Amino acid sequence: MPASMGDTLVPVTTPVSLATRTRRSRPRRTGRVAAVSSVLLSAAVLAAPAHADVPEGWAGQDEVNNLDFLGALALYAGAPLLLFVLIGLAVYLPAMVRGEKLLPDHSGGEAQWIGGPRQGVAELPAPDGDGSRAGGASGSW
């Protein structure tokens, strides 16, 4: 390349022959057709009805299973209650074995002043006179 063309862009063309183009696209086209046809064929096979006989007892319902009141109560109320108790035991039993307290402690405890002076009210400024408001908040109605 001459020195005068160093900063000039030169168009690049690649000759394409039709013979190589069709040779490369034929496998792609065949692959696409095979993929689409396999999806359609599998959908048709899966959507076909199953050829099976109805199990005995389903067609005529000769046998009737009645559930009495106590059985229904045990099924619909007893099973959830039993599950509730088992989950409660799974949660509280390890803490009871370790000897931990399960109920919260509602005692007053020690008062905390978060962000306040470290020494308590001793670090607050003392009032300078009788009408001074230093040392805390005040309010009146």
Score class of each variant (00 low, 15 high):
Leu83Gln: 09
Arg29Tyr: 09
Leu81Thr: 09
Asp68Phe: 04
Leu75Phe: 04
Pro94Trp: 07
Arg98Gly: 00
Gly99Asn: 03
Leu81Glu: 13
Leu93Arg: 14
Pro94Met: 00
Ala43Asp: 11
Trp58Leu: 14
Ala90Glu: 02
Gly60Cys: 05
Leu102Trp: 04
Glu100Pro: 01
Leu81Pro: 00
Leu82Arg: 05
Ala95Tyr: 08
Phe84Pro: 00
His106Asn: 14
Pro94Ala: 03
Leu103Thr: 11
Pro80Val: 05
Asn66Asp: 15
Ala74Asp: 03
Gln61Leu: 11
Val97Gly: 04
Asp53Met: 06
Gly78Lys: 10
Ala48Asp: 05
Ala59Ser: 12
Pro94Cys: 07
Asp68Tyr: 04
Val85Tyr: 01
Leu67Cys: 02
Leu40Lys: 07
Tyr92Val: 09
Leu102Asp: 05
Ala34Met: 09
Asp62Ile: 12
Glu56Ile: 05
Asn66Ala: 08
Ser38Arg: 12
Asp62Lys: 13
Ala72Gln: 10
Val54His: 08
Gly57Pro: 01
Leu46Asn: 05
Ala79Asn: 06
Ala90Trp: 15
Ala74Tyr: 07
Gly78Phe: 10
Leu73Lys: 02
Ala72Trp: 05
Val64Trp: 07
Ala48Trp: 15
Ala74Val: 12
Glu63Trp: 08
Gly99Ile: 02
Gln61Pro: 03
Glu56Ser: 05
Gly88Asp: 06
Gly57Lys: 02
Ala34Tyr: 04
Glu100Arg: 04
Ala72Tyr: 06
Ile87Trp: 15
Val54Gly: 01
Asp68Glu: 12
Ala44Cys: 03
Ala59Cys: 08
Ala47Gln: 11
Leu103Asp: 04
Leu40Pro: 02
Leu46Glu: 05
Arg28Met: 13
Ala59Val: 09
Trp58His: 08
Gly57Thr: 00
